[in-house]
């Protein structure tokens, strides 16, 4: 019943019946998003835990395996994600200032950057598949000294895979945001979905900020 589910025009935004004021409704939404982000952090946290354990056990194998990741592609993707974070932050800002067209443009750029990210990821993945650099039982690459490179690639594929799924979900949400924005639903009076999505997108970036050095740079 909250105001968000009606295709309301900008000036039709109403505070949901159970909130005292627009401020309270905004804060509630933001707090909800932050609590959701906590679950995301702990979800990825499990993988970081697995990474920590196996890296400490198989240090040499991890270092050896990480040389098979493409550092340049990883770095480019990092830059792409940081840029998309900037455009998303600016999209929230322009929504706050009721610049509807600019908001659409910035969300569009963010969407385009996420496509770039996934394209690069696709090339990386297909390279790994080709070389047999796969998790566990399917690890067929040759010329490794250690026996546990498969574990490294298990962690690599789980981490980047789940991260990639988050990017995909983010792209779907961006299309949804674009549609709503083009219908003029967002303005300085009401932009909670843009802001909430922005927080999600920054978190996806934040996870990558850790994934990149751990997997690509130091192994």
């Amino acid at each position: 019943m909250s105001a968000t589910d009606k295709p309301a025009r900008e000036n039709e935004f109403q505070v949901a019946h159970h909130f005292d004021s627009a401020d309270v409704q905004f804060d509630a939404g933001r707090m909800g998003i932050w609590l959701f982000l906590v679950t995301e952090i702990l979800l990825f946290g499990g993988l970081f835990c697995a990474f920590a354990v196996f890296r400490s056990w198989y240090y040499a194998d991890f270092v050896e395996a990480h040389h098979h990741l493409n550092r340049v592609m990883g770095a480019v993707n990092t830059v792409v994600l940081i840029c998309s974070s900037l455009t998303m932050a600016l999209a929230v800002r322009s929504a706050q200032m009721s610049k509807t067209k600019l908001t659409s443009l910035l969300i569009g750029v963010t969407l385009a950057l996420s496509c770039v990210f996934l394209t690069i990821k696709f090339f990386e993945y297909s390279h790994k598949f080709h070389e047999g650099l796969l998790p566990g039982r399917y690890f067929t690459a040759e010329g490794f000294h250690g026996h546990h490179a498969g574990i490294f690639f298990a962690v690599y594929f789980m981490m980047t895979g789940i991260h990639g799924i988050h990017i995909l979900i983010g792209m779907g949400l961006m299309i949804w945001l674009l549609r709503r924005n083009m219908r003029g639903e967002f303005s300085s009076r009401y932009y909670a979905p843009v802001e909430g999505f922005g927080l999600y997108w920054h978190l996806v970036d934040l996870v990558w900020i850790y994934l990149f050095p751990l997997l690509y740079l130091i192994g």
Binding site: L35, V38, T39, E40, I41, L42, L43, F44, G45, G46, L47, A50, F54, P135, G136, R137, Y138, G150, I151, A154, V155, F157, M158, I162
Partner: peptide, 25 residues
């Protein structure tokens, strides 16, 4: 619920990956 449940989620995802793809973790 908020702090613990996501770890169950990743546990089950890893278990599913283990069953389907034999990732070896």
């Amino acid at each position: 619920q908020i702090l613990a449940t996501p770890v169950l989620a990743i546990t089950l995802l890893l278990l599913m990956a283990e069953r389907v793809f034999h990732i070896g973790i």
